[in-house]
Write a protein that binds this DNA or RNA. Sequence first.
DNA 1: ATTAGCACTCGCGGATCTGGAGTGCTAGGC
DNA 2: GCCTAGCACTCCAGATCCGCGAGTGCTAAT
Lengths: 326, 326
Amino acid sequence: MLAQELDARKEQILWAVIREYVARAEPVPSEVVFQRYSLGVSPATIRSGMHALTEMGYLRQPHTSAGRVPTDRAYRLYVDRLLSQACGGSSPEPVLSAAERERIRRRLAARDRPEEALEEAAQTLASLTEYPSVVSTPGGPRRLRHVHLVPLAQDRALVVLVTESGAEQRVLRLERPASAEELEEVSRLVSRWLEAVAGQGEPLERLAAQAQSHRGLLASVVGQLRRAVAARGNVRFFVQGVANILKQPEFQDVRRVRPVLAALDREEVLRNVLLPAPPEVHVRIGRENPVEDMRDCSVVAAAYRAGGRAVGVLGVVGPTRMPYAR
Amino acid sequence: MLAQELDARKEQILWAVIREYVARAEPVPSEVVFQRYSLGVSPATIRSGMHALTEMGYLRQPHTSAGRVPTDRAYRLYVDRLLSQACGGSSPEPVLSAAERERIRRRLAARDRPEEALEEAAQTLASLTEYPSVVSTPGGPRRLRHVHLVPLAQDRALVVLVTESGAEQRVLRLERPASAEELEEVSRLVSRWLEAVAGQGEPLERLAAQAQSHRGLLASVVGQLRRAVAARGNVRFFVQGVANILKQPEFQDVRRVRPVLAALDREEVLRNVLLPAPPEVHVRIGRENPVEDMRDCSVVAAAYRAGGRAVGVLGVVGPTRMPYAR
DNA sequence: ATTAGCACTCGCGGATCTGGAGTGCTAGGC
DNA sequence: GCCTAGCACTCCAGATCCGCGAGTGCTAAT
């Protein structure tokens, strides 16, 4: 019943069933495994193997006279194997040709608004995989590089934060009206300060301390900055290709799709699902998913790098039956 | 056959059918109209009226022994009537209580990133209406107020454009490396120039002319600016609540939903559908929609104001059978 | 241990049937 | 002349039934 090691034959059979099911989205009978995967044994033997795998919890049969379907557990095993292989030897067949890669890189670089680039990335990923895909803005601790304050109205100013991985804006409510000159002075002060301490420890903390003794404006700017840099909450997500999920046979039923789509609409969910993705590539299969509504899906997430550090996350959401080979 | 004026009774019947169908999402039989709307006549008479309306193209019956369903044309008439009423007298029942309005206003103001505010707006609209909703960023010609150049890498700089309705960023590719000081100088030059000509005609054109005689950096900045300000293409959309559409009975069939969702994913489509929304409120019903894939839906769009001018658009996408009373 | 053969199970699609809903028509009433 | 009551007719929707085919699990033979 439990996962004692599979012998070679069982493993072959399991792999075959998984691959076949991924391709057909229908229960896989022994006959098909026999025809398409030359295992050197007859259907009957395959059947007995499948029987054993079923007892071990790797396969499942929808009803007595149907083929077998892999369980989450089977996928888990399969994916783990794939990943460890990929880490070991270099992956044998790059899913994207070099030319394709280059084209994508080009298209991304051509976008002259950083957000657009991310959106484009999500789009590309979605159309490439035919699944809904998500790309997050760079998040996590970053180092500020410049700050600009721009007057908006009497009591508001726009704070433009330039970090090592892009810029973002926030509206700052001023306690008292400030002149354009004053704003500019503060911008320059803060920016220069940032430059001065660049590369040493955590600049913000020190700046905050120094700001205590300054006038209110500087203090509130610093407050805003601290909030801005405080990792959580300032990650945004671009979701693209949601409609793709409707192509999948297992999502032909609206009642099954709704929770998933609803989940993709909610930022907290995306955060929960995508952000805890520490290693390079992470796969969550079915019920492994922290979010109840996504228990019918798998999520493949990977961090992407920008300027050295891994900062953002991108992911693909699909049925548990997806070609994990990516 | 054609739309000669409806007499009072026919109109009453038509209104009743529309309202009832909107509520039930099922063909409306004469009996129901008789019971729920006291028209003072018997079901038989109502039937005869419905028959006439059917011939005139306002109603439709899915099959011989089913009730009647309003056609696009009926909705069109109904909506026009509603809109002209709303413009005339003040609308009798504000759909949102004053308290609700205030709460929403608060929540929007609380967001300290402008984009987030828009996203929040879309979310609110979606949860309020229970339909997918779209909000666009302010678009159209705007007046620049400030420009900041920030060095990013050797050959790129970030251009932060501050307009009267917010800020946006673009990446500028530099022909030759420029020092931080140089960038700053150009920023200041352009910004001061913008201030100087504020309020008079079209500042950009003049700036462009003057820039011809300057060094390359200024020229390319100006080029970028012109592109940025050139209305089209820099509107972004926030779509929220797509999953809502799956609640609608007419979208229980995945094949019907897919095109719509796919359309909502594509920016050009949104542009086509939403942007040509000149008056305050605009309703596109079914086939009136310019986009083939949206022929099963209606789109209610309205411009929103920010600082005086109408700049952005927000809209709701629903089945043709939606409570147009909003 | 593998395999061929075979009986058995079960889901699925198609055909059939029936009840009910709602209409359209017609004949009679105000 | 318009409205209404009554009724026959139509047609969909759901239930039921049936037969087929698919695929398994067992068993006996190699």
